[in-house]
Design a protein around this nucleic acid. Sequence first.
DNA 1: GCAAGGTC
Length: 916
Amino acid sequence: MKILCVAEKPSIAKSISEILAGGQRTARRSRAQYIQNYDFSYQLAGPLGRCHADFTMTSVLGHLTSSDFEDRVRKWHSCDPFQLFDARIETYIDDKLKPVAQNLKEEARRADILMIWTDCDREGEHIGQEIVNVCREVNARLRVKRARFSAIIPAQIHRACQNPFELDVRQAEAVDARISLDLRLGAAFTRLQTMTLQQRVPDLDGKVISYGPCQYPTLGFVCDQHFRVQNFVPETFWYISVGLERDDNNVQFKWSRGHLFDFEMAVVLYEICVESPMARVTNVKTKPTQKWKPLPLTTVELQKSGSRLLRLAPKKILDIAEKLYQQGFLSYPRTETDQFDKDFDFMSLIRKQVADPAWGGFAQRLVDGDFARPRNGQKNDKAHPPIHPTAHAGNLQADEKRVYEFVTRRFLACCSTNGEGQSTNVDIEIAGEKFTTSGLVILARNYLEVYPYDKWADSYLPNFQQGEQFMPSYCELKDGQTASPAYLTEADLVGLMDKNGIGTDATIAEHIAKIIEREYVEARQDRGAKYLVPSDLGIGLVVGYNQIGFDRSLTKPHLRRETEHRMQMICDGVATKNEVLQDSIMQYQEVYIKAKREFETVVQSVGRYMQEQPARAIRAGRPAGGGAPRGNRNNNDDNDDDDDDDDFGRDNGQGGGARGRGRGRGRGKAGTTTKARKPAAPRGRGTTTKGKGSTRKDPDDDDDNQGPAPKRPRTSGANTDNTGGTAPDCQCGAPAKQLVVRREGANKGRPFWTCSKGQDEGCGFFEWADGCENVATAPRRTTSAAQNRPAPPLRPPSRPDNEGPQCSCGMPAVQRTVQKAGPNQGKTFHTCSKPQGEQCGFFEWDDPDGQAGDRGRGGRADDGGGQSGDCFKCGQSGHWASACPNEDGGNNRGRSSRGRGAGASRARGGKRSRGR
DNA sequence: GCAAGGTC
């Protein structure tokens, strides 16, 4: 019996034939470059029979066939792009791969059985089908079998060979559908966009404006983050900082409330603390802790951590890994698997690293008994193991050396044990306020010795005893500001794409490179990190499509996810390929028709953002394909006018999303659009955006760079506010939703508009809904750390007079009375009803004329008796109660005045300026 | 001159 085995790539053919042949094989060169044919004999004992069979193992080079449209529509101007949705698609073998197919035919002629050894995933099944089709052309009687394996290790390979399955036709058909849909959608939209925009926007002459179902969601991620950055409004918060100098160490305690956005409440709590500043240690807990070793390395993780740690572009990392793989130094670099097979031979691989001068000693210790099995992740593509070194490489240079070192150290770290340490937490209370600090003693670094990319450092904590009391060295009221989110790094983007199913491990890096190549996005270096900033063209496209508004946005991942879901339906037998194609094509046609009809919106948007010339430079015309009417009847009100130029001019004047900035930056910058406006440089924590007041204060100031947030936005009329106004559209193109500020602070109760899609998916749009400019601080915009925190539940804009307030937990607050001697003694206030330690921090005076309850609105005075800025004890201004000179003995509470001098006085100033 | 997915 003669059996022809075909793998997806030469390396797999080589390693599998090595295993099956047990060293007894002959290699023949094929007519195709890179491909060898391996002959050997193999003893079959399973369902295929019990005999000595003659085996030949060869391979292809990935997909054998290509697809393109029939001749009739292949030329760009040969048809309306709409016809591409039902044009015939031809499948053919590219000239470059003809020798590969020829080799298959020659080998298949003499074979009885064709055994497919492609990777065990959907694409592998499709490649298998391509191989079958070619081989059957010359040998119609060929029996086809499919070897299934999840790792290239002898036991599995022999088992796969003895017990082959059938080829999974459904999976192959699912890929067929994917190929057809991607081609039709990509080509139709690319032609529509390119031909129309080239015609209308002079600066785009000669540029391909491609659309791809992976390219656009990738661009969408970059733009969404840009909008978040642009829309960010910093907000001031306050917190109490407590410290103690002990044993030559400055021990800092963190406030359990974190920080507060309500200045008055922070002051009240701070005053309570400095009134009775003695700290009591309520809990000292020491426990063992671990620093977890990393997971085995997948392609996506290699690109993410490599980009972050080695500062190389994801595509560059993958290219280097590919080269190292071909040189035999690394395992196959395209894998989704983060768990090693249970039979994986770790020890022989670790032994190969013993010779290395840098990590050889560590490898030796693993061999000598320190080895521990790597952790198992959640992913397994059943085709390739995690990326690991397969040989020691001592002579690599530059980036290749760094990538190899990273992979090797990661592998050795996986085979080591977690870092071990002892952590100590100390909780204290000052006047009922809780603070905490912690220390760490590292007992054994373990994997950290070989993996310097992870940081874990001792932090010494002096001895504290439960129940002990001490006077803090300082107790300060400090202020800070929420920080703008940063632009996405390449690592962030790889993570987002992976999470949302955009691209595969092998293609994610290519999609990022593609949107950079198309000039939709610019990779900008800033202090050692590379950030992705959308260009004017990229923003214009995204905003334009979002303004059109589709059920499934072209710039969000949903459409791709749906394609993925439909492919799975084919695989599961729930739908046939033809059903899926029919439904999907019809859906895409609808999207295309809407896009084409309203393409003027995209033209205007791109023109506006790329506005290197006055609006008139946008040539009159119509979308490619010659069908769409001008006038945009289906567009929003601003575009109802029948004159393109007027539309454009008025857009600017009314200050829509892009307008203010567009006009400002356009002046005198003709011919340099993309570079004329640079979005704000990436920011790290601690930097601030332009103040919210300054960006929104003057509606006639068109020169400010206020980002896409509309001052007086166009409205869709879908949502209405409580005064009958209509909802503005956010950058997502959807009507914004109205919420009410719930958090304690000067703006509590104010209605505002925000993106209806929430914090994670939304664009970060924000605008007050009461028509006023900022009274004080806007609702907090998110920082990257804060983004994952759920917003507190919102309550209705106003509450009936007979109802008590609700606290931030959503519970009715309880009324209490100030017991402490001072000007507020006897006053009532509402606070969270939960026991101490579980409280949400809610605080509100009951007296509407009271000090803190007023929240700084409506004629609140800075001066005058009894205001909160005055001493609680004597009523005089200029000092705090805890340093009251009129108090007997002049007790200044030790060194706590440090805080009053620095932090507190700043904080007071902050409050005063808000009141004006 | 279009896409995305394999691989060299």
